[in-house]
């Protein structure tokens, strides 16, 4: 699944900016990655790193103040950037779908959950209302509602948080899309429920051959589901590669710091905080964006932005000292 041309979706040199009263704010800068069928790309970073805005840009769901300023989003040879709203809507949901952190916000509180899954089917497929209803019940059962026939008649508030997130997954996958972007889908849930939702996503990925983009601030959660990982910092990807290499031998100093910030089971010691804060979006230095916080920074780091260069073992790292970063 790694040969060129196998991508379900290719994001190429994407930049997103906000036009705000205080000036232009760079949210995403020259980001490139590919999603492959049956595989999961985990995207990690802190709030404000651009991981969610980048996903919204790919989906054509940017807020009005934000715009794509360069780059392409390639799907089946077509560039989704600049596509008309109607054409994009026809693709979204049918081929390219999404799940967000807050299932309550994603569901209509005044509509039964069965009707919401049925609506997703009716929107994109030539099926009868009755077939859509039956299909909805089947999907609710598939995502793990214990009594789908009865619970299809429930309103969102009558279900637990975990069950609601299962419903949004049913809504997202009802039309069997090829690509799913899940943005912090388990962050609001208890750990036991989180574990079961991760299992469900992995099962559905196998079943549908889904190309999955899984976004989270928590590297530990991402490590449980991702085949490849992209680490984002201040709107850029600073490291991208196979999950096991990146986790065992991180080469960007920020990836290392992020790994050290996650509490490790068994160590019984507090995790290490990353000192400082990312640069403000309106005042971006010309050099490496992590330089001000980086223990390895040298004068050359300030000269220009390090490109995301190949670093062997299928990995890319945006650091001029990547070879010197010890595991």
């Amino acid at each position: 699944m790694t040969q060129p041309g196998a991508a379900a979706l290719a994001v190429d040199d994407l930049s997103v900016e906000f036009d705000l009263p205080g000036g232009r704010l760079v949210a995403v800068e020259n980001v490139s990655y590919r999603l492959e069928p049956g595989r999961t790309l985990g995207v990690v970073g802190e709030s404000g790193s651009g991981k969610s805005i980048g996903a919204l840009a790919v989906l054509g769901l940017l807020p009005p103040a934000a715009a794509i300023t360069r780059g392409r989003v390639l799907w089946r040879g077509r560039d989704l950037v600049g596509l008309e709203a109607a054409a994009l809507r026809a693709i979204r949901g049918r081929h390219l779908s999404m799940v967000f952190q807050d299932p309550m916000g994603a569901l209509n509180p005044a509509m039964t959950v069965g009707a919401q899954v049925a609506e997703s089917l009716l929107l994109h497929q030539p099926v009868s209302a009755r077939a859509a209803r039956d299909g909805a019940v089947a999907w609710l059962g598939r995502v793990g509602l214990p009594e789908p026939g009865r619970q299809a008649g429930f309103y969102p508030h009558e279900l637990s948080g975990g069950m609601r997130q299962r419903v949004t997954i049913a809504v997202a996958l009802a039309c069997r899309p090829e690509i799913l972007i899940a943005d912090e889908p388990t962050t609001a849930l208890d750990v036991t429920v989180q574990a079961r939702i991760l299992d469900l996503l992995l099962d559905l990925q196998d079943e549908l051959g889904l190309a999955l983009q899984f976004i989270s601030h928590n590297l530990a959660v991402v490590s449980e589901i991702a085949d490849a990982i992209a680490v984002m910092y201040a709107g850029t990807i600073v490291e991208l590669g196979p999950a096991e290499h990146l986790l065992e031998d991180p080469r960007h100093p920020y990836t290392r710091a992020l790994l050290a910030a996650v509490p490790r089971p068994g160590t019984r010691t507090p995790p290490r905080a990353i000192p400082g804060a990312p640069p403000a979006g309106t005042a971006r230095p010309a050099g490496c964006l992590y330089e001000a916080r980086c223990p390895l920074a040298i004068a050359a780091c300030r000269a220009r932005r390090p490109p995301l260069d190949r670093f062997g073992d299928g990995r890319r790292v945006a650091c001029i000292r990547a070879a010197e970063v010890a595991a």
């Binding site: 079961r196 299992d199 928590n218 530990a220 490590s223 449980e224």
Partner: peptide
Amino acid sequence: IPRLGAGKRRRADTAAE
């Protein structure tokens, strides 16, 4: 608990919600 360094998760190792 999500664990770093354990590789991709083994499924169905948790009981019901």
